[in-house]
């Protein structure tokens, strides 16, 4: 596995985790007061979760 591939994958996983972390914290804080925002965030959060799953698989393949 090349070093640059691994660095890129780690970067992508960290970015996805960040997007999920930020979104979930916001959903937790705002679901009562700002349901419109939460409705907008939820599908994007699901997409991001799927993206993370695929990134984690890539990482596993890179490592094996």
């Amino acid at each position: 596995m090349s070093d640059s591939n691994e660095k890129q994958t780690v970067h992508d996983i960290n970015s996805s985790l960040q997007a999920l972390q930020g979104a979930l914290e916001l959903i937790k804080d705002e679901w009562r007061t700002n349901p419109q925002l939460v409705e907008r965030l939820l599908p994007l959060t699901v997409d991001k979760l799927n993206q993370l799953q695929s990134q984690l698989q890539d990482f596993r393949h890179l490592k094996s």
Partner: peptide, 9 residues
């Protein structure tokens, strides 16, 4: 997703 969350925050 990150942009929207941070903006709202």
């Amino acid at each position: 997703l990150s942009r929207l969350s941070l903006k709202a925050r």
